[in-house]
């Protein structure tokens, strides 16, 4: 039996005349080879488009019964599981947050008053940026640093009822760091700042009005994110003036916090127009420290340790 089978197989092989697939890398003339390669690419692309169109047609023909579109896999929706993700029903987190250092703001006991300052001897760009930041944040006061220590500024700020201290740091005359310290004993966060674009550098930037803005905080979902989000919310007063249509956005995506400042307009029932106003910048969290600014002896609640923590591209902390 076995021998017979073999024979039949051989016969079949002889019957089927196989044309070897053209192996482009075997072509020795470079010009011809590259031409053949381009041809192959073109055909592949054509096939792909054809296939996509066919699928589209099929879906249209099926109408409602069509299988749902596949969701694209991104590093955000395949995020590594984080057990500190806050569940809104969580009682303990609610209790913790109701009594934390920012609670007095959220209970409407304090009105934010912000002190903005820079590093010693700031560059022109940093100065301009601070001036714009002053315009964006209501009830904020810009002071020159005058080489004062932050630890000496804090008691002075406290005596003048400031609730937050903002320090813009720079490197090579480009602003690259932001320290926000909540007063009197609130946490201190240190951000890396990048992609600063002033209002003058934005195309078709609008004129700013003095209305109190609305705030949007996007994707601050973990326990750490909650703390940071609450700190950022603390900078702006309650009760936005809605007729000003000003909105400040802190959008967290992949641990980068994007700051944008817009004015919106409802064109009709469906369309909304946006006009960008203030500066643009991106923040990335470096440390969250308990207590007011004390980088040497303060206790850190969270420190970004690059090589130890960044084990996966799909792992995020905020």
């Amino acid at each position: 039996m076995a021998t017979r089978r073999n024979v039949t197989n051989e016969e079949e092989r002889e019957d089927v005349q196989t044309i070897p697939a053209p192996n482009i890398s075997r072509i020795k003339n470079k010009k011809l080879r590259s031409e053949a390669y381009r041809q192959m690419k073109r055909e592949k692309k054509k096939m792909k488009i054809k296939e996509r169109k066919r699928k589209q047609m099929e879906a249209e023909a099926m109408g409602d019964k069509a299988p749902p579109k596949k969701v694209q896999r991104t590093i955000e929706n395949t995020r590594v599981y984080d057990e500190t993700m806050v569940n809104p029903q969580d009682e303990e987190v609610a209790v913790d947050e109701a009594q934390d250092e920012m609670a007095s703001y959220f209970n409407r006991e304090t009105i934010p008053k912000i002190l903005i300052t820079t590093c010693d001897r700031p560059g022109q760009r940093t100065n301009k940026f601070c001036k714009e930041l002053k315009k964006v944040i209501p009830n904020s006061h810009l002071y020159y640093r005058r080489g004062l220590d932050l630890k000496k500024i804090i008691p002075q700020a406290l005596s003048r009822d400031f609730t937050d201290l903002l320090v813009v740091n720079e490197n090579r005359k480009i602003p690259n760091g932001l320290v926000i310290s909540h007063l009197p004993d609130g946490p201190t966060v240190h951000f890396k700042m990048s992609g600063v674009r002033l209002t003058t550098e934005l195309k078709r930037a609008g004129e700013l009005t003095g209305h109190q803005p609305e705030i949007i905080l996007n994707n601050f979902n973990t326990r750490l994110g909650h703390s940071v989000g609450r700190m950022l919310a603390c900078l702006f007063p309650h009760d936005p003036e809605f007729h000003g249509r000003r909105v400040v956005t802190f959008h967290n995506q992949r641990d980068f916090i994007f700051f944008r400042h817009h004015r919106y307009v409802f064109r009709n029932a469906k369309k909304v127009g946006l006009q960008e106003l203030g500066p643009r910048f991106t923040l990335k969290l470096r440390t969250l420290q308990k207590g007011s600014f004390d980088s040497k002896f303060g206790e850190y609640e969270w420190v970004h340790k690059r090589h130890e923590m960044e084990t996966s591209r799909r792992k995020f902390f905020l």
Binding site: L288, K290, E299, Y300, E301, W302, V303, E308, M309
Partner: peptide, 9 residues
């Protein structure tokens, strides 16, 4: 020891 994010009490 590795794996800590914040200060130890």
């Amino acid at each position: 020891f590795k794996g800590f994010a914040g200060g130890i009490r």
